[in-house]
Simulated assay, not measured.
Amino acid sequence: MTTVLRYAAFTTDPAGGNKAGVVPDATGLTDQRMLAIAAELGYSETAFLIADPSAGERTYRVRYFAPTLEVPFCGHATIAAAVAVADATGPGELVFETGAGTVPVVVAADGDGVLRATLTSVEPHVLEIGEADVAQALALLGWQADELDPTLPPRVAYAGARHLVLAARSRERLAELSYDFDGLAAFMTERELITLQLVWRESATVFHVRDPFPVGGVVEDPATGAAAAAFGAYLRELGEVGETAELTLHQGADLGSPGLLSVELRAGDPRVRVSGAGVRLPE
């Protein structure tokens, strides 16, 4: 009997954040079985863990499945899985060997006993995207070019998975999300994009974000740690933040499932750290 746990990441409230499945011991599960479990749960991703003591204590091989496909890395399921491990074995340092590379995670309890996990991304990069591709993405979203924030140009950002960053000029534009599901899924599949990172800048370090995820069979991801890491790298690449910075991302409020993501950049380290709380869902 396969044990499947359910967690919410980037929240302390089970009603908020982004839900993820966690299979703490996926030893012997086939790809088809993992995909079936993820589809049955219906969450944007489920993390499947296999302990690898030969690689070090508290080291796990981790695979991530959305309802329709496997993805190389998922931030919110990493947070959820790390908190699940900490619930079972105590806080501390973990190592997740993912399809994108090695992701260290640290779990600590705050003064109220809430478990919070911090992942360190693989090395990110940021790429330009052609005007024709941007125009096609906007058409599929139903956005107009003049609704974009000209100070935050479109880019493809990677920190374990590829995300197209598009910045809205207004919070109202971000709040209204209705898009061509099949068309956007095909567009993203052709370009190996996992989500679109749609953002609106409230201040220099505070952003509101939304992430359509049609390639995974999900209309929208409520809190996206992988995209948050990629977005931190994007802002640094553009010079919008310093080499050292702390960012706050609000996500999920438009879905009635608010989450809070903290992003940290450190001078001398190209990797990006993403932190958030996690809580187990009631059975």
Rank of each mutant, 00 (worst) to 15 (best):
M1C: 14
R6Q: 14
Y7K: 08
Y7Q: 09
A8C: 04
T12D: 10
T12I: 11
N18P: 09
V23T: 08
T27G: 03
L29D: 09
T30H: 09
D31Y: 06
R33I: 00
M34E: 10
L35C: 12
A39K: 04
A39W: 02
L41D: 04
G42Q: 02
E45Q: 13
A51T: 03
P53G: 03
S54E: 15
A55S: 11
E57M: 13
R58I: 10
T59E: 10
Y64R: 04
L69P: 03
V71I: 15
V71P: 05
C74I: 15
H76V: 13
I79L: 10
A81H: 11
A81T: 08
A81L: 12
A82Q: 09
A86P: 08
G90E: 11
G92V: 15
E93M: 14
V95E: 13
F96W: 05
E97I: 11
T98Y: 05
T102E: 13
V106A: 15
D110L: 05
T118E: 12
L119Y: 06
T120A: 01
V122P: 12
G130H: 13
A135M: 06
L141E: 05
A145P: 11
E147S: 13
D149E: 14
P150W: 07
T151Y: 09
V156E: 02
A161C: 02
R162N: 10
R169W: 07
R169F: 08
S170I: 00
S170Q: 13
D180V: 07
D180K: 03
A185E: 14
A186I: 04
T189N: 12
L193Y: 11
T195R: 09
Q197K: 06
Q197G: 00
V199I: 14
R201A: 12
E202N: 12
E202Y: 07
S203M: 05
S203C: 10
A204T: 15
F207D: 03
H208Y: 01
R210T: 02
P212W: 08
V215T: 08
G217T: 06
V218M: 07
D221E: 14
A223M: 02
A223T: 01
A230E: 09
Y234H: 06
L235E: 07
E240W: 07
V241E: 09
G242E: 04
G252T: 07
G256T: 10
G256M: 02
R266T: 15
R266G: 02
G268A: 01
V274H: 04
G278H: 02
R280L: 15
P282Y: 12
